[in-house]
Design a protein around this nucleic acid. Structure first.
Lengths: 120, 120
DNA sequence: GCAATATATAACCATATGGTTGAATATAGC
DNA sequence: GCTATATTCAACCATATGGTTATATATTGC
């Protein structure tokens, strides 16, 4: 099993766990956007938006460019790439259909007896 | 942009945001495992482990089979599949190399003038 | 230079989270 | 039947989180 930076994954998955922040990333996928424009679709204070952006920035999911009083945010896909790479470890579980998945687990059972094996 | 169940993503990403829970999923990728065996590598109380498993179960990431006093947990990959599908929206950002990514963003800028466009 | 604008920071709040210890509940084994 | 085992539930704790309002800081435009 490949090693991943735990903190990066903690922060990335943590950031993605909020719907507002996911929505903001979707907005940014259309291109560089300033804070006020990012705030527009969200029924919350600018201060709350600023906080969310702080989380996204700390997770490395967005980058900030200050142009005077205007801050433009851009998407940085790298952490999501890492997250997807991590999830890819489990791809073998869903690429198989249901029957071969059950068979797969059965085989695992036979190869490695467990504490609870006696119950089966 | 495709619609996703927000609650499913909230819960899945939220569950994956914790290193202990990610480690448990890794353990379960080897096959059905009882709670005590899942707890073994983790320097924490059984009650804490139970809580984590509750989070994973609520997110649908694990399924529980009670065999008397022994609870066997198995991996359910479906929520991770959903999460990866959601992340796939951003694949186009990291599949391109850095130069074409910058070009890509420039094109977006030209097509859609933004509030902060005047600064450029 | 001053008022307007963009945004962050601070303090607050209610709730959630990742842990603890202690107790409770159900099952297994002798 | 009683002790041991597997696991959850309850109460607690310190910290974090997603919001609020108020204030501060920096920049812009006239």
């Amino acid at each position: 099993m490949v090693e991943y930076s735990s903190e990066l994954l903690d922060r990335t998955f943590g950031a993605l766990a909020d719907p507002t922040r996911r929505q903001m990333l979707a907005q940014l996928s259309a291109g560089e956007t300033c804070v006020t424009d990012l705030a527009r679709p969200h029924a919350m204070s600018l201060a709350a938006v600023s906080k969310h952006l702080g989380v996204l920035e700390k997770a490395g999911l967005v980058k900030r460019q200050r142009n005077g009083r205007v801050h433009s945010m851009t998407l940085d896909p790298k952490p999501m790439q890492e997250a997807q790479a991590w999830l890819d470890q489990y791809r073998k579980f869903w690429d198989a259909n249901l029957d071969s998945f059950a068979t797969y687990l059965e085989k695992l059972h036979k190869q490695e007896p467990k504490h609870d094996d006696a119950d089966q």
